[in-house]
Amino acid sequence: MSLFRKFLFPPPSSLFVNAMSFIGVISLCAIGFGEIRGKHLNYSKFWRSNPEKNLKKENSISSTKGMLTVYTPAFVASMVSFGFIEWQLRPLLLSSTLALHFCKRIVEVLFVHRYSGGMMLDTSFLISLSYFLSSVTMIYSQSLTPGHPEPALDLKYIGVPLFLLGITGNFYHHYLLSKLRKNQSDGYKIPSGGLFGLAVCPHYLFEILGFVGVTFIAQTLYALAFTLGTISYLMGRSYATRKWYLAHFKDFPRERKALIPYIF
């Protein structure tokens, strides 16, 4: 517990936040394990590989509309939070990083990503609700920290550059992915450039770094739980992505890892 207190604020007395911390990490870990087992959230290439979902066209929308539905509520919540949070450095940094994260996502949906399929409505609303509740809960959890002892190790000044590295690396590799379809081709290709030569999903790796940065800024139990759940999910997603490429491309280099170069 003493080691725990060096890095985090004391757990809040809020039953809601504590319950969300538990539910969040368990549910994301379960979804990540489902990805490994082949039970995917149906969007991107995994939408195409599930014929049962493809038959339900009446329950689908375009990927652009679906992803805007995913990110917009969390972005709005992050922006609205500036009207309610304590105007102190840590809460301001947290709301700013969350707003910047989801603003970047919306910009990418509108101007960077090139989609080839659709998205199930239930998948879109499920992910949207998850992001919205996670953002609100993270900001609310931060609002409960004033008056409590600060962690012995102040990590927010490490968290800011780590977040910026994560968001920049994530954007760069998303841009490289978009270049694979510059002619609006429906076909998938093996990604190249950046860290794609070493891992299938370096964009997920940088997303993880970004959320680790957010956790360092917040230093709350909920932020840590959310990030651990996110890591679990993205590990499962990257594993499934590598498996998909191996199945669809005979010349896919087997030495290329899923998420972390040379390791996993």
Rank of each mutant, 00 (worst) to 15 (best):
F16N: 08
F16P: 10
N18A: 08
M20R: 00
F22E: 07
I23Q: 02
C29D: 01
G32L: 07
F33L: 11
G34V: 09
I36C: 09
I36A: 04
L41F: 04
Y43R: 15
K45L: 14
K45G: 11
W47N: 12
S49W: 06
S49E: 12
N50T: 03
P51A: 08
K53G: 08
K53M: 14
K53T: 12
N54Y: 04
K56A: 07
K57G: 14
K57C: 15
S60I: 02
I61T: 00
S62A: 09
S62Y: 00
S63Y: 01
G66F: 05
M67D: 03
M67P: 05
L68M: 10
L68S: 08
T72A: 11
A74W: 04
F75S: 07
S78D: 00
S81K: 11
F82S: 11
G83I: 08
G83H: 09
E86Y: 12
L89C: 15
R90L: 03
L92T: 04
L94C: 10
S95T: 15
S95P: 10
S96I: 09
L98R: 02
L98Q: 02
A99C: 13
A99W: 06
A99P: 08
L100W: 10
H101T: 06
F102H: 01
K104M: 01
R105H: 05
R105P: 01
I106S: 00
I106Y: 03
I106D: 04
E108S: 01
L110M: 06
V112L: 13
H113M: 12
H113G: 12
Y115T: 12
S116P: 11
G117T: 12
G118C: 13
G118P: 03
G118R: 11
M120P: 06
M120K: 14
M120R: 06
D122S: 14
F125E: 03
S128Q: 02
L129K: 11
L129Y: 05
Y131C: 15
Y131G: 06
V136Y: 06
T137G: 10
M138G: 05
